[in-house]
Simulated assay, not measured.
Amino acid sequence: MVSRNLFVISGNVSQTPRQFGDKALKTVVTIAVDEFWTDRESGERKKRTDFLTAYTFNKKIGDFIQAHAKQGYQVTIDGRIRSNSYEKGSERVYTTDLEILRIDAHPPRSEASSGDLE
């Protein structure tokens, strides 16, 4: 049986991406992902937004994120899920992390189409 560790996220950049380390070793971006559904009892349309944080240690991808994934831009991220743990005081903390392998970024529709009309 073949196994895969892959995720795809499509949403909007919710904060300015951040780089960490002297040589920008780690780049972190937070994505807002909306979920819509219709309430069965009231028939009302509902929405929930999840804020997901993804990272990369790849300098080329990190530089692309800094240059092209501005707040409000639409992005699609492909990557893999990583499990990690660290000590915080006397307790072990376990995390599930999203590692970016590929990213596409597009400006908001109003910004992308504003230059097309002239």
Rank of each mutant, 00 (worst) to 15 (best):
E91R: 02
G11Q: 11
G72P: 03
S90I: 00
K47S: 09
N58D: 15
S42V: 00
R18P: 06
I31L: 09
R92W: 00
Y55P: 00
I61E: 05
E99I: 01
R4L: 07
N5T: 07
V29D: 10
G72F: 09
D116Y: 14
R40P: 13
L101G: 11
G89N: 04
D104R: 11
L6A: 06
Q71F: 04
K23Q: 13
G115N: 11
V28G: 10
D63F: 00
S90Q: 06
I81W: 09
E41P: 01
L52P: 06
E91L: 03
A24Q: 15
T96R: 15
E44R: 11
A112N: 01
K60T: 15
L52W: 06
D34R: 12
H68K: 13
T53G: 06
Y94E: 07
Y55K: 01
K88M: 02
D50F: 07
E35W: 01
G72T: 11
V13D: 10
A112Y: 11
D50C: 02
F57T: 07
S90H: 06
E41A: 12
S42M: 04
L101E: 12
T27D: 01
G72E: 04
V8G: 13
D63N: 14
R80L: 02
Y55E: 00
P17H: 11
N84C: 01
Q19K: 12
D50H: 10
L25Y: 13
A54E: 03
I103W: 08
S110W: 12
S3D: 15
G79E: 04
N58T: 14
R109F: 10
W37L: 02
K26P: 09
E44A: 14
E35C: 06
K88F: 00
G43T: 05
R18K: 14
R102Y: 05
P17R: 09
S114V: 12
E44C: 04
Y86Q: 03
N12W: 07
L6H: 13
V93E: 05
I103G: 01
S14Y: 04
G89A: 00
E99M: 06
F51G: 05
N84M: 04
K47T: 10
L6D: 10
L25F: 11
I61M: 01
V2T: 13
S3M: 14
R45C: 01
I9F: 07
R82L: 05
Y55G: 02
K23M: 04
Q19W: 12
A112I: 07
S83C: 07
A24C: 13
K59I: 09
L117M: 07
D22Y: 09
I9C: 07
D97E: 15
D63S: 14
S113D: 13
S14K: 10
S42E: 02
R4H: 08
D22G: 15
P17F: 11
Q15A: 10
D116Q: 08
E41W: 02
Q19H: 15
V33K: 13
Q71S: 03
E87G: 01
V2M: 10
P107M: 00
T49R: 04
R82C: 03
A105G: 05
Y94D: 05
V2K: 12
Y86A: 00
G79V: 06
R48A: 09
T96D: 08
F7H: 08
V29K: 03
T76Y: 00
V28W: 05
A112W: 02
L98N: 04
E44F: 00
H68E: 14
I9L: 14
I77R: 00
R45L: 03
I65C: 07
S3A: 14
